[in-house]
Design a binder for these strands. Structure first.
Lengths: 333, 333
DNA sequence: TTGTACGCGTTATCAA
DNA sequence: TTGATAACGCGTACAA
């Protein structure tokens, strides 16, 4: 049973409010009593109750983060950024992973509401629309990461990132460039795919739909894509993958079949995971300012919480950076 | 402003207690009123407050998990196991990462206490001792993962895992086997180191302290260890790493210097991360039953919460499994 | 400087 | 079957 403020009051022979004041460093209280009560509280192992506090204060000094997938290290970096900004404002961060499952995403958001978090950050939402103010189902501020269509969002410009990396491949002489997508579900709204198409168009390269193969954002998706690519009547010379995990799958599957990267195929990833610099070969990829993305999202959310001035907040976009390493090379002649 | 039970009561023209009963499916209530109130609650966007509920119920139906490091995918798998078991008992899981920082670990545990979680799981605690019942600083049950000395713990037998993998190296003919540890801080209580020493002893191989080099559990630690190994007057032929991340760092650093694995050195990891099967070369490693570890930890915690019968709970140990892949090979002659 | 009284949202108990 | 009341732990006006 936790010790309550009343227990301390009884023990100290004062009223509960005096204890409350002592513990919260209130102005009008004798230094002596304050000190002795603080000492007593510590000795008795007092731990304040967020439940009771939040009930009266109508705030819990905590924000909830619903992340796409715990297993993806990309989100770990994002979390570091969020926690840093939150800690600076003395907010506690609570995390849950919805594993790319729309139902779980909504369940987590609902749980955060039940816990009366002060605000929520959702990465890569699968149900973006439901958070639109029109619905009014949510009574706390929500910031989305990488959903640039949402009014309160912080995103990396994935269109630009994809364009940059495809142009890099084109500059290396590649003309038949395959793309492994995140999955069929996302095809229409894929910014990466748009960037890919734009880069081709800018360089007058004709688009061939057979070069687009569905992955799933994980290693397995990359592995499964390879036989489809190799079955094409005319092989690609380069593969632009949805992310680094996919690229690792692709390189692995190619190696299994006796191909070498970048000798036989250039392969590019996206994300610049820590692993990208240590894989063999090291990955050419797109670095997203992940840490900054996190701090920006947290700051936007805190702004929404504090001033409640939704008008003052506009969607933010950060620019990604091309990282050239060894998995891409000039096309073989 | 969230809608409260009172708001609904006013709107429905009944008392708050009736609303509470309707929402909680209590027995003695007219089906009609129950249905209409439930409908009204949904329409008004009612979301119950865990704060208020927990205050009176003295339980929040949630457990906190403090994990070692978000960036380590090992913990993602563990979380899946925990969440699965928790969900089966209708418990919510809340996660925080302490990034191997003892202070943050204690801060998180304290926060969980403030939130009046029903119990806590801590992975790889850096401050194991502080949770011993003797201290009595904690009023909620705590289960530790991979701290077999603690009375309420679920662990993989790391001693056995290390012994298995070192014996595998010995069988391949290796005699000078280096070990990259988790860090100097952990040397005395390293079960992996014990397993390593035991394997050597069982095969009458003399121990050479210079072969033990400190890492940090991350890629960087592996990278930094390599120059120290290469500076030894007599080179090792194999390296047993604290974990897969360290092994990746080691292999990478060796490759940078023109060495090839396993031609020049055999390198073994520990954990069997997803990546281990896809790295180049694929890693020989030790698979921990990570998912099962998670479910077991959650079940133990739930037992402690429910029956409060500490006597009925004993530390559990699961057996790890040797996974042989391409990063280890017979010693060169 | 300290104590008293009330309310936050909810549930449980008792009475109607 | 329903309503009134108290209680959970805490903060804060207001009174002393």
């Amino acid at each position: 049973m936790p010790v309550s403020i009343k227990d301390i009051a009884k023990e100290a022979g004062v009223s509960p409010s005096t204890v409350s004041r002592a513990l919260n460093d209130h102005p009008h209280i004798r230094d002596e009593t304050k000190a002795s009560i603080q000492r007593l509280a510590k000795a008795m192992g007092y731990v304040p109750s967020v439940l009771a506090r939040g009930l009266v204060a109508k705030r819990t000094a905590s924000i909830g983060v619903a992340i796409t997938d715990l297993a993806d290290p990309y989100y770990a970096r994002l979390m570091l950024g969020i926690e840093e900004a939150a800690a600076a404002h003395r907010y506690q961060v609570v995390l849950s992973s919805y594993c790319r499952d729309p139902d779980r995403e909504l369940a987590i958001v609902n749980d955060f509401q039940m816990r009366r978090m002060d605000g929520i950050i959702i990465t890569g939402s699968e149900t973006e629309e439901s958070y639109l103010p029109a619905g009014q189902k949510f009574f706390l501020p929500i910031v989305l990461v990488n959903r640039p269509g949402y009014p309160f969002s912080v995103s990396v410009d994935r269109f630009l990132g994809a364009r940059k990396i495809v142009e890099h491949l084109i500059e290396l002489g590649h003309r038949r460039i395959a793309h492994i997508s995140e999955g069929a579900r996302f095809r229409d709204k894929s910014r990466r795919l748009d960037g890919y198409l734009t880069a081709l168009e800018m360089h007058n390269i004709e688009f061939d739909g057979r070069l687009i193969v569905d992955g799933d954002g994980n290693i397995g998706g990359g592995i499964q894509a390879v036989p489809q690519l190799l079955a094409l009547p005319e092989l690609p010379t380069a593969v632009f993958c949805f992310n680094d995990m996919t690229a690792i799958g692709v390189i692995n599957a190619l190696r299994q079949r006796g191909y070498e990267v970048p000798r036989d195929f250039s392969v590019a990833g996206y994300d610049d995971l820590e692993m990208a610099a240590y894989y063999y070969p090291t990955l050419t990829t797109v670095r997203q300012q992940t840490h900054e993305l996190g701090t920006r999202a947290a700051k936007m959310l805190l702004k929404l919480i504090d001033i409640d001035g939704e008008d003052k907040v506009a969607p933010e976009v950060v620019e990604p950076q091309l990282i050239v390493r060894q998995s891409t090379a000039p096309v073989a002649v």
